[in-house]
Design a protein around this nucleic acid. Structure first.
Length: 872
RNA sequence: GCCCGGAUGGCGGAAUAGGUAGACGCAAGGGACUUAAAAUCCCUCGGUGGCAACACCGUGCCGGUUCGAUUCCGGCUCCGGGCACCA
């Protein structure tokens, strides 16, 4: 054992040991409890970032802890290798996405190994390789045949200059990020997963998922958004529309139908299209609605505009004529593309009605007479569903919301002008992408047979890897050798689909493939899947709370219904780590864009309170704008490279710092200070262990023979075990577990070493420190454990158990409050009765000062904690 | 705009079946050791007042419930995540 702590040598040696012994390769051993610990696999962007380090360290700590509990632990790793960044890099550097991706993977894998992660690399999977995506294509063809996948028209962002479809991220302020052209909405045919068919189950299963954070379940419930309402039919007014027909709307508030004063339709709605003929103003407005991105956030924040069509429809109960408006906030493809408007009880309709001078009919009044209705100013209670009663509603007057709902829907159903309907906010999942670097959709378009799924014996449809996209459209469309094919059904000349799949598809089932990653007989090998699945612990960023986690849950149910897995949910327990965030810095560019600077390139000036006041670029000394703290990302260039930290301090120090800086589910603002402290602590552990080992072997601990001081030290050891075990095992709060070990180290460093039993106690203390730290800082613990005289490696040592008898205390310290204010500390015997404690408290000198002249009304004794004397 | 979170010393954070606010660490200041530095060790460290004992104030803001509120309730402010083609 070297006197100095030398992380480089120690870490290399420990990593070599694990590699030589294949320590983390696991098989399906019968009779052992399994634990499948999975962290979200990375996109191979180039280098590990801080979010990766945090994510994978958390996963590794949990995996190693579970192993010490005696479980057969699987911790696999792979690459979410398809995606847009590879295409962007290709356009920029003229390198094929495949080559760029594989290079990144190799670099990042080396970084993973430097971090000392307990990964079974024999199970590595790469989603852009045919041996992976062929099963995705296979599943696609099965689901297509079942009707779970279907084709319909969808809306995308279209860049008219680059002639290409843009992702929402590529639309900035309504313009294409490369061309700067105004983006348009364009409708194209796409394939969809019928996720809405599983909406009810995806919702109800959430009630049986105790291992998931409430926050995530709430977000998913709201996203699925089950609502109870009604479809309502409005007959066309023949005079103004010119044809017979009915306008269908869905509403969650049929109870307000008597207050409907107009209807609004989307620009693409047949009524709007019809009205636009020979109406240049309306035609222009419809064209205007086509501009801008498809992102919901943009839709929701844009100015609400509308135009009358000159058409009317008939109110289904009163027969009144209601004007038909075209409105930019009504979306085609969501619901019926038409809404009924009740300005008095819907805030958006209220604003719209006031803008366009449309009538506002109040149909609910507050039961609180102080709340009166004002048609010019919106008050929140207008949308209340409780403490309101119907008015101005004819035969429906005087009803509650529920009663009005029921009566009105019953009448609509009797008149065949509507019906009760449950609806979901969740929409079907469009997966077609007009991009090269993705999994090809296994469909062949035949002029006579239509869309034909590629037969199983012709899978996989291999994506050519030596292609360099140029940013305009999908290069597969220019490659006859890819798209020219024959129809599998009739043998005629046919065209292969050139769209690829959304990369969320690959990440929706990868966790299952890890069970049997090389299996060639199917998507999963049943025995392996049954052995490992579901995942016991899944770890990843909170930013995936909805999309990825919902899609993966959906896929698990699809796979279950295909007989591939036998559970209902993929992830028993979920830990959503907070983001690693950092300050951003930028300068405005002449074209209105922003040039982002990395924190390392910037020097920040602080005021005397430590608050940042200004920043300058180191290279030119000119000021930059402080842009606020955001998630570390490439687009904002605010990432801090963890490699620099690893090189300087070693993996254990980085891991320790990351875990100590904040609890895993909280966002972590990066700061350079603190890493020194982690390094200092590991040096202290090393030094104490070194001194102890140098002093030679020690005798066994004689627990019964310990004196009072020694008993206190032993109590500290076992208190640390107790608290750290709770922190790691139950609360998954590694920062407080580390604090417990630091507190123990503070005690152990002061422990005398003269007597043999003092040294025996120190041995127990150092073993405890090593075991408790082993999941967090595995390399240093690997070496110290050996040096403390153990032949088995620490990864296979059992997690320590607290000795209850060591924790018992004779006297307890309690506090005394007078009227809730702290006035004294008292020591009481652990066996003291309530009355004895109260007497000691009331006789305390400082307590007497504050109760003097007052009458004691009440004494509250909280066992082991405090006494509160209420007096006046 | 809508949905979900968060806010505690100079900084990261600790403490919630409601019970001592600031564990543990960082930074800072002072001291010891040293020719010197690094490293290490010791002390101080929320604010105000006080020689001190101690007192008063203090967990984003306003209000409420309670013997007692960082914790529960109502109303805000600011910050972060997501919003279906970033992953």
């Amino acid at each position: 054992m070297h006197e100095q702590y030398q992380p480089r040598d120690i870490e290399a040696a420990a990593q070599r040991h694990w590699a030589e012994h294949k320590s983390f390769e696991v098989t399906e051993q019968a009779g052992k409890d399994t634990y499948y610990c999975l962290s979200m696999f990375p996109y191979p962007s180039g280098r590990l970032h801080m979010g990766h380090v945090r994510n994978y360290t958390i996963g590794d700590v949990i995996a190693r802890y579970q192993r010490m509990l005696g479980k057969n632990v699987l911790q696999p790793m792979g690459w979410d290798a398809f995606g847009m960044p590879a295409e962007n890099a290709a356009i920029q550097n003229k390198v094929a996405p495949a080559a760029w991706t594989y290079e990144n993977m190799a670099y990042m894998k080396a970084q993973f190994n430097q971090l000392g992660l307990a990964i079974d690399w024999s199970r590595e999977i790469t989603t852009c390789k045919p041996d992976y995506y062929r099963w995705e294509q296979w599943l696609f063809t099965q689901l297509y045949k079942k009707g779970i996948i279907y084709k319909k028209v969808g809306t995308v962002n279209w860049d008219p200059v680059d002639q290409t479809v843009l992702a929402n991220e590529q639309v900035i302020d309504g313009r294409g990020w490369r061309s700067d052209a105004l983006v348009e909405k364009r409708e194209i045919p796409m394939y969809y997963f019928k996720i809405t068919a599983y909406a009810d189950e995806l919702l109800s299963s959430l009630d049986n998922m105790p291992g998931w954070p409430e926050q995530v379940k709430t977000m998913q419930r709201n996203w699925i958004g089950k609502s109870f309402g009604a479809d309502i039919l409005f007959d066309y007014d023949l005079d103004t529309v010119g044809i017979e027909g009915q306008l269908k709307v869905y509403t969650t508030r049929p109870d307000t139908l008597m207050g409907a004063t107009y209807v609004a339709v989307a620009a693409e709605h047949p009524l709007a299209q019809r009205a636009a003929v020979n109406n240049p103003e309306l035609t222009a407005f419809i064209a205007e609605c086509k501009a801008g991105s498809v992102a919901e956030a943009d839709m929701a924040t844009m100015e609400k505009k509308g135009l009358p069509t000159g058409q009317f429809v008939l109110h289904p109960l009163t027969g009144d004529k209601l004007p038909v408006y075209v409105a930019n906030y009504v979306l085609w493809g969501y619901g019926e593309g038409a809404v009924m408007a009740v300005p008095a009880h819907d805030e958006r309709d209220f604003a719209f009605a006031n803008t366009y001078q449309l009538p506002i009919t109040q149909v609910f009044a507050s039961t609180d007479e102080n709340k009166t209705f004002d048609a010019k100013v919106w008050h929140d209670w207008y949308a209340n569903k409780t403490d309101v009663t119907t008015i101005n509603s004819g035969k429906y007057d005087g009803l509650s919301v529920q009663d009005a709902f029921d009566s009105i829907v019953a009448d609509l159903e009797a008149k065949e002008r509507g019906e009760r309907k449950t609806q979901f906010r969740l929409r079907d999942w469009g997966i077609s992408r007009q991009r090269y670097w993705g999994c090809p959709i296994p469909i062949i378009h035949c002029p006579s047979c239509g869309d034909v799924p590629v037969p199983e014996d012709q899978l996989p449809v291999v994506l050519p890897e030596n292609v360099i996209p140029d940013g305009s459209g999908n290069p597969l469309n220019k490659m006859p050798e890819f798209y020219e094919c024959t129809c599998p059904t009739c043998g005629a000349d046919a065209r292969r689909e050139t769209d690829t799949m959304d990369t969320f598809v690959e990440s929706s089932w990868y966790y299952a493939r890890y069970a049997s990653p090389q299996y060639e007989g199917g998507l999963v090998e049943k025995s392996a899947a049954d052995y490992w699945l579901p995942v016991d612990q899944y770890i990843g960023g909170i930013e995936h709370a909805i999309l990825h986690l919902l899609y993966a849950r959906f896929f698990h149910k699809l796979m279950r219904d295909e007989g591939l897995v036998n559970s209902d949910e993929p992830f028993a327990k979920l830990l959503t780590q907070g983001m690693v965030i950092a300050e951003t810095y930028y300068r405005m560019l002449p074209n209105g864009g922003r040039q982002w600077y990395n924190p390392e390139e910037v020097k920040v000036e602080h005021d005397n309170k430590g608050k940042a006041v200004s920043a300058t670029l180191i290279s030119d000394g000119e000021p930059v704008i402080i842009g606020g703290i955001e998630k570390m990302s490439k687009s904002k260039n605010n990432g801090v490279d963890p490699q620099v930290m690893i090189d300087e301090y070693g993996a254990d120090t980085c891991r320790l710092f990351m875990m100590f800086a904040s609890p895993p589910d909280m966002s972590l603002e990066w700061s350079d200070s603190g890493i020194e402290g982690a390094s200092r602590f590991l040096k202290r552990v090393w030094r104490l262990a070194y001194k102890h080992v140098q002093a030679g072997a020690c005798e066994p601990l004689d627990i019964a023979g310990l004196n009072d001081t020694q008993k206190e030290v032993r109590r500290a050891i076992h208190a640390a075990i107790q608290h750290a075990s709770q922190d790691v095992g139950q609360h998954q709060k590694f920062n407080t577990a580390i604090a417990q070990v630091m507190t123990l180290m503070n005690v152990l460093e002061k422990n005398p070493t003269e007597q043999a039993q003092d040294r025996a106690l120190l041995q127990e203390g150092l073993e405890t420190v090593t075991l408790l730290l082993a999941p967090i800082t595995p390399h240093i613990c690997h070496v110290i454990w050996q040096q403390l005289g153990h032949s088995e490696p620490v990864i296979d040592a059992p997690w320590p158990q607290a000795d209850e008898s060591a924790l018992i205390q004779d006297t307890l310290s309690m506090v005394v409050q007078v009227n809730g204010k702290l006035r004294a500390h008292i020591d009481v015997s652990a066996s003291a009765s309530r009355e004895e404690i109260e007497t000691i408290a009331r006789e305390n000198e400082n307590v007497l000062r504050y109760t003097d002249g007052l009458t004691v009304r009440k004494v509250i004794v909280v066992p082991n904690k405090l006494v509160n004397i209420v007096a006046n």
